[in-house]
Amino acid sequence: MGWKSNIILAIFLICVGIVGLFLLKDMPEPPAMFPEILFFLLIFFSTVLLISVLKNSKDGSEKKEINYYPVLKITGGLVLYTLIIKILGYLLATFLLVIYIILVMGYPKKLITVVVSLVSVSIIFAIFKLLLNVPLPAGLFLGL
């Protein structure tokens, strides 16, 4: 990642700092003191970063093509999982999640995928639910 991303980062954090200071306007003094110092420091260090990056603009390292597609797919899968876990219930949702992740990762053997998901989710369920009494979500339909 070259210097461009560093510039974006610095500018983004400066904006965060300004917004943060703005949010502190209504807060009484003692609790606002620490965040206030921190947002000023954030702006300060971001500016230092910005200046140092702009100075060394030439030594941008070579760009690598990054395949963001699977990253987005996994993040999306996790978000969807979290949205539906209470509806489907822990067992089914997690089972599907594991299959999905293994498939996105590009593993070709479908049967092994399913077996691994089934076994691993069952073991994890046994440890957390049965041994540790963690109330994993039951789901609306199955009641488990």
Binding site: L91, L92, F95, L118, F141, L142, G143
Partner: peptide, 14 residues
């Protein structure tokens, strides 16, 4: 099969 087995062994909801 999984769905079926899960629903079979759960009576709590009803």
């Amino acid at each position: 099969l999984l769905v079926f087995s899960i629903s079979a062994c759960s009576g709590g909801g009803a």
